[in-house]
Simulated scan of single mutants.
Amino acid sequence: MRFATLDSFIGEGRALLSKGPVALIFVEDETEIESTLRHHLKCGFGAVLALMPDAFALDDIADPRVHRIGFDCASPEVLADAVNRFIEAAPGLWFYYCFNAEYLFFPFCESRSVGELLAFHGEEKRDAMLTYVVDLYADTPEADDQPVLLDRAHLDRAGYYALARIDPATGEPRERQLDFFGGLRWRYEEHIPPASRRIDRVALFRAAPGLRLLPDHRFADQEYNTYSCPWHHNLTAAICSFRTAKALKRNPGSRHAIDSFLWRSSTPFEWHSRQLLDLGLMEPGQWF
Protein backbone atom coordinates (compact mmCIF):
# COMPACT_ATOMS: atom_id res chain seq x y z
CA MET A 1 0.00 0.00 0.00
CA ARG A 2 1.01 3.62 -0.47
CA PHE A 3 0.42 6.51 1.92
CA ALA A 4 0.99 10.15 1.01
CA THR A 5 2.40 11.19 4.40
CA LEU A 6 3.33 9.83 7.78
CA ASP A 7 0.21 11.50 9.18
CA SER A 8 -1.98 9.60 6.73
CA PHE A 9 -0.31 6.31 7.67
CA ILE A 10 -0.80 6.92 11.39
CA GLY A 11 -4.41 7.88 10.75
CA GLU A 12 -5.40 5.29 8.14
CA GLY A 13 -2.83 2.51 8.23
CA ARG A 14 -2.29 1.92 11.93
CA ALA A 15 -3.86 -1.53 11.60
CA LEU A 16 -0.79 -2.53 9.58
CA LEU A 17 1.18 -2.27 12.81
CA SER A 18 -0.82 -5.07 14.38
CA LYS A 19 1.80 -7.70 13.53
CA GLY A 20 5.43 -7.11 14.37
CA PRO A 21 8.26 -6.75 14.40
CA VAL A 22 8.10 -3.76 12.02
CA ALA A 23 11.03 -2.43 9.98
CA LEU A 24 11.23 1.29 9.27
CA ILE A 25 13.48 1.95 6.25
CA PHE A 26 14.38 5.63 5.88
CA VAL A 27 15.34 6.27 2.25
CA GLU A 28 17.85 9.09 1.80
CA ASP A 29 18.66 8.57 -1.89
CA GLU A 30 17.90 6.11 -4.69
CA THR A 31 20.74 3.70 -3.88
CA GLU A 32 19.80 0.03 -3.39
CA ILE A 33 16.24 0.71 -2.23
CA GLU A 34 14.85 -2.59 -3.52
CA SER A 35 17.73 -4.71 -2.18
CA THR A 36 17.33 -3.10 1.25
CA LEU A 37 13.61 -3.85 1.35
CA ARG A 38 14.04 -7.42 0.09
CA HIS A 39 16.79 -8.13 2.62
CA HIS A 40 14.58 -7.09 5.52
CA LEU A 41 11.62 -9.02 4.16
CA LYS A 42 13.87 -12.07 4.17
CA CYS A 43 14.71 -11.36 7.83
CA GLY A 44 11.05 -12.03 8.63
CA PHE A 45 9.63 -8.64 9.60
CA GLY A 46 5.85 -8.50 9.85
CA ALA A 47 5.80 -5.21 7.94
CA VAL A 48 8.47 -3.25 6.07
CA LEU A 49 7.71 0.46 5.76
CA ALA A 50 9.66 2.51 3.20
CA LEU A 51 9.67 6.16 4.24
CA MET A 52 10.84 8.05 1.16
CA PRO A 53 10.31 11.16 -0.99
CA ASP A 54 7.68 10.93 -3.73
CA ALA A 55 10.31 11.66 -6.38
CA PHE A 56 12.21 8.43 -5.71
CA ALA A 57 11.42 5.44 -7.90
CA LEU A 58 10.48 2.16 -6.29
CA ASP A 59 9.84 -0.98 -8.31
CA ASP A 60 6.81 -2.95 -7.30
CA ILE A 61 7.66 -5.67 -4.79
CA ALA A 62 5.08 -8.43 -4.78
CA ASP A 63 4.88 -8.74 -1.03
CA PRO A 64 1.90 -7.39 0.95
CA ARG A 65 4.20 -6.54 3.88
CA VAL A 66 5.81 -3.62 2.00
CA HIS A 67 4.21 -0.19 2.36
CA ARG A 68 5.46 3.14 1.01
CA ILE A 69 5.08 6.35 3.03
CA GLY A 70 5.84 9.82 1.67
CA PHE A 71 8.61 11.27 3.82
CA ASP A 72 11.80 13.34 3.58
CA CYS A 73 14.41 12.41 6.21
CA ALA A 74 16.52 15.52 5.72
CA SER A 75 17.82 15.70 9.28
CA PRO A 76 18.40 13.50 12.36
CA GLU A 77 15.74 15.43 14.23
CA VAL A 78 13.11 14.61 11.60
CA LEU A 79 14.02 10.92 11.70
CA ALA A 80 13.84 10.77 15.50
CA ASP A 81 10.47 12.54 15.44
CA ALA A 82 9.16 9.98 12.93
CA VAL A 83 10.32 7.02 15.03
CA ASN A 84 8.70 8.59 18.07
CA ARG A 85 5.42 8.87 16.17
CA PHE A 86 5.51 5.11 15.60
CA ILE A 87 6.34 4.52 19.27
CA GLU A 88 3.27 6.51 20.30
CA ALA A 89 1.09 4.69 17.76
CA ALA A 90 2.02 1.14 18.75
CA PRO A 91 3.27 0.70 22.34
CA GLY A 92 4.43 -2.84 23.01
CA LEU A 93 5.45 -3.52 19.41
CA TRP A 94 9.04 -4.31 18.40
CA PHE A 95 10.50 -1.88 15.85
CA TYR A 96 13.69 -1.71 13.83
CA TYR A 97 14.97 1.25 11.84
CA CYS A 98 17.74 1.79 9.32
CA PHE A 99 18.53 3.64 6.09
CA ASN A 100 18.65 2.40 2.50
CA ALA A 101 21.82 0.48 1.58
CA GLU A 102 21.92 -0.86 5.16
CA TYR A 103 21.38 -4.55 5.92
CA LEU A 104 20.54 -6.14 9.27
CA PHE A 105 22.43 -9.26 10.35
CA PHE A 106 21.96 -11.08 13.62
CA PRO A 107 23.31 -14.37 14.99
CA PHE A 108 22.12 -17.33 12.92
CA CYS A 109 19.91 -15.11 10.72
CA GLU A 110 20.31 -17.56 7.83
CA SER A 111 18.10 -20.09 9.64
CA ARG A 112 16.18 -18.03 12.22
CA SER A 113 13.83 -15.08 11.87
CA VAL A 114 13.99 -11.69 13.51
CA GLY A 115 10.76 -12.61 15.30
CA GLU A 116 12.47 -15.59 16.92
CA LEU A 117 15.43 -13.37 17.83
CA LEU A 118 13.27 -10.80 19.59
CA ALA A 119 11.07 -13.41 21.29
CA PHE A 120 14.18 -14.83 22.97
CA HIS A 121 15.51 -11.34 23.75
CA GLY A 122 12.20 -10.39 25.34
CA GLU A 123 12.24 -13.53 27.47
CA GLU A 124 15.53 -12.27 28.90
CA LYS A 125 13.66 -9.14 30.06
CA ARG A 126 15.32 -6.97 27.42
CA ASP A 127 13.36 -4.24 25.59
CA ALA A 128 16.13 -3.04 23.30
CA MET A 129 19.07 -4.52 21.39
CA LEU A 130 22.35 -2.82 20.63
CA THR A 131 23.41 -2.93 16.97
CA TYR A 132 26.84 -2.07 15.59
CA VAL A 133 26.92 -0.20 12.29
CA VAL A 134 29.62 -1.99 10.29
CA ASP A 135 30.84 0.07 7.35
CA LEU A 136 30.82 -1.58 3.93
CA TYR A 137 32.67 -0.21 0.90
CA ALA A 138 33.47 -1.21 -2.66
CA ASP A 139 36.99 -2.41 -3.44
CA THR A 140 37.36 -0.29 -6.59
CA PRO A 141 38.81 3.23 -6.43
CA GLU A 142 37.01 4.23 -9.61
CA ALA A 143 33.61 3.90 -7.88
CA ASP A 144 33.55 7.58 -6.95
CA ASP A 145 30.02 8.32 -8.08
CA GLN A 146 28.59 4.98 -6.96
CA PRO A 147 30.62 3.53 -4.07
CA VAL A 148 28.01 0.82 -3.46
CA LEU A 149 28.75 -2.51 -5.12
CA LEU A 150 27.07 -5.42 -3.35
CA ASP A 151 29.13 -8.10 -5.07
CA ARG A 152 32.42 -6.34 -4.27
CA ALA A 153 31.65 -5.24 -0.72
CA HIS A 154 34.44 -5.17 1.88
CA LEU A 155 34.59 -4.40 5.58
CA ASP A 156 37.29 -3.77 8.18
CA ARG A 157 38.29 -6.86 10.17
CA ALA A 158 40.18 -4.76 12.79
CA GLY A 159 40.27 -1.27 14.26
CA TYR A 160 37.17 -1.35 16.48
CA TYR A 161 37.21 -0.10 20.06
CA ALA A 162 34.97 1.21 22.84
CA LEU A 163 35.20 4.00 25.41
CA ALA A 164 33.29 4.53 28.61
CA ARG A 165 30.16 6.59 28.15
CA ILE A 166 30.22 9.43 30.68
CA ASP A 167 27.08 10.73 32.32
CA PRO A 168 27.27 14.53 31.88
CA ALA A 169 25.30 15.06 35.09
CA THR A 170 27.69 13.11 37.34
CA GLY A 171 30.94 12.85 35.37
CA GLU A 172 30.93 9.09 36.02
CA PRO A 173 30.72 6.23 33.50
CA ARG A 174 27.20 5.04 32.82
CA GLU A 175 26.51 1.44 33.81
CA ARG A 176 26.60 -1.06 30.93
CA GLN A 177 26.98 1.67 28.32
CA LEU A 178 29.91 2.25 25.97
CA ASP A 179 30.61 4.42 22.93
CA PHE A 180 31.82 2.24 20.06
CA PHE A 181 34.08 3.37 17.20
CA GLY A 182 35.72 1.87 14.14
CA GLY A 183 35.37 1.37 10.41
CA LEU A 184 35.46 4.24 7.95
CA ARG A 185 34.29 6.71 10.59
CA TRP A 186 37.46 5.96 12.56
CA ARG A 187 39.87 5.77 9.62
CA TYR A 188 38.61 9.01 8.08
CA GLU A 189 37.58 10.78 11.26
CA GLU A 190 38.99 14.11 10.02
CA HIS A 191 36.07 14.15 7.56
CA ILE A 192 33.43 13.03 10.09
CA PRO A 193 31.84 15.42 12.62
CA PRO A 194 32.61 14.27 16.19
CA ALA A 195 28.94 13.73 16.95
CA SER A 196 28.68 11.26 14.03
CA ARG A 197 31.72 9.06 14.76
CA ARG A 198 30.03 6.47 16.97
CA ILE A 199 29.01 3.19 15.34
CA ASP A 200 26.54 2.02 17.99
CA ARG A 201 22.82 2.36 17.34
CA VAL A 202 19.89 1.02 19.36
CA ALA A 203 18.04 -0.03 16.22
CA LEU A 204 15.88 -2.84 17.64
CA PHE A 205 13.54 -1.86 20.46
CA ARG A 206 10.13 -2.46 21.96
CA ALA A 207 7.90 0.63 21.97
CA ALA A 208 6.65 1.78 25.36
CA PRO A 209 4.51 4.69 26.58
CA GLY A 210 6.67 7.79 26.98
CA LEU A 211 9.71 6.27 25.25
CA ARG A 212 11.65 8.81 23.16
CA LEU A 213 14.40 8.30 20.59
CA LEU A 214 16.99 11.10 20.53
CA PRO A 215 18.67 12.43 17.33
CA ASP A 216 21.98 10.73 18.27
CA HIS A 217 20.42 7.21 18.00
CA ARG A 218 20.14 6.85 21.76
CA PHE A 219 17.01 6.79 23.91
CA ALA A 220 15.99 9.06 26.77
CA ASP A 221 15.41 5.90 28.86
CA GLN A 222 19.00 4.94 29.75
CA GLU A 223 18.23 1.24 30.19
CA TYR A 224 17.45 1.08 26.47
CA ASN A 225 21.03 2.23 25.76
CA THR A 226 22.68 -0.64 27.64
CA TYR A 227 24.46 -3.45 25.81
CA SER A 228 23.43 -6.19 28.26
CA CYS A 229 21.58 -6.92 31.45
CA PRO A 230 23.53 -6.87 34.77
CA TRP A 231 23.82 -10.67 34.97
CA HIS A 232 25.20 -11.94 31.65
CA HIS A 233 25.87 -11.06 28.02
CA ASN A 234 22.87 -10.49 25.78
CA LEU A 235 22.35 -10.71 22.06
CA THR A 236 23.61 -7.91 19.83
CA ALA A 237 23.24 -7.47 16.07
CA ALA A 238 25.01 -5.69 13.22
CA ILE A 239 23.83 -3.30 10.52
CA CYS A 240 26.14 -3.62 7.53
CA SER A 241 26.03 -0.20 5.93
CA PHE A 242 27.28 1.59 2.83
CA ARG A 243 26.05 4.91 4.26
CA THR A 244 29.44 6.26 5.38
CA ALA A 245 31.14 5.23 2.13
CA LYS A 246 28.45 7.07 0.17
CA ALA A 247 28.88 10.20 2.25
CA LEU A 248 32.69 10.22 2.02
CA LYS A 249 32.65 9.74 -1.75
CA ARG A 250 29.96 12.33 -2.38
CA ASN A 251 31.17 15.05 -0.02
CA PRO A 252 33.39 17.55 -1.89
CA GLY A 253 35.63 17.89 1.16
CA SER A 254 36.56 14.20 1.25
CA ARG A 255 35.94 12.56 -2.13
CA HIS A 256 39.23 13.66 -3.71
CA ALA A 257 41.23 12.87 -0.57
CA ILE A 258 40.36 9.16 -0.75
CA ASP A 259 41.76 7.09 -3.61
CA SER A 260 40.52 3.78 -2.22
CA PHE A 261 38.88 2.58 0.97
CA LEU A 262 41.02 -0.56 0.98
CA TRP A 263 43.73 -0.94 3.64
CA ARG A 264 45.69 -3.77 5.25
CA SER A 265 42.74 -4.87 7.38
CA SER A 266 40.14 -4.92 4.60
CA THR A 267 38.46 -8.23 3.85
CA PRO A 268 35.64 -9.22 1.47
CA PHE A 269 32.22 -9.24 3.09
CA GLU A 270 30.71 -12.72 2.91
CA TRP A 271 27.08 -11.64 3.54
CA HIS A 272 26.84 -14.22 6.34
CA SER A 273 26.36 -13.89 10.07
CA ARG A 274 29.20 -16.34 10.81
CA GLN A 275 31.79 -13.86 9.55
CA LEU A 276 30.43 -11.10 11.81
CA LEU A 277 30.38 -13.43 14.81
CA ASP A 278 33.95 -14.56 14.14
CA LEU A 279 35.09 -10.92 13.95
CA GLY A 280 33.36 -10.10 17.24
CA LEU A 281 31.00 -7.64 15.58
CA MET A 282 27.93 -9.14 17.24
CA GLU A 283 27.22 -11.27 20.27
CA PRO A 284 25.06 -14.44 20.45
CA GLY A 285 24.64 -14.20 24.22
CA GLN A 286 22.82 -17.26 25.53
CA TRP A 287 21.07 -17.95 22.20
CA PHE A 288 22.35 -21.04 20.41
Rank of each mutant, 00 (worst) to 15 (best):
A4P: 06
D7F: 12
F9S: 01
E12H: 12
E12T: 06
F26D: 03
E28I: 07
I33V: 05
S35F: 06
H39M: 06
L41E: 03
L51K: 01
A55V: 13
A62I: 01
D63S: 03
P64R: 01
R68F: 02
V78W: 02
A80V: 02
D81C: 05
I87P: 08
G92S: 05
F99I: 00
F106G: 05
V114N: 06
E116T: 02
E124P: 00
E124Q: 07
R126G: 11
R126Q: 14
D135F: 00
Y137C: 02
D144N: 15
V148R: 01
D156A: 11
A158D: 10
R165I: 00
I166T: 08
E172N: 03
R174Q: 15
R176E: 04
L178D: 01
F180N: 04
F181D: 10
F181R: 04
G183W: 10
W186S: 12
R187V: 02
E189R: 15
E190T: 09
H191W: 07
H191V: 00
H191I: 00
R198S: 08
I199P: 09
D200T: 10
R201L: 10
L204I: 08
A208H: 07
A208M: 11
Q222Y: 03
T226R: 12
N234K: 03
T236Q: 14
T236W: 07
S241G: 03
S241R: 05
F242Q: 15
F242H: 14
A247R: 15
L248P: 08
K249M: 15
S254H: 08
S254C: 11
A257N: 15
R264N: 12
S265I: 06
P268A: 05
R274F: 15
Q275W: 15
L276V: 09
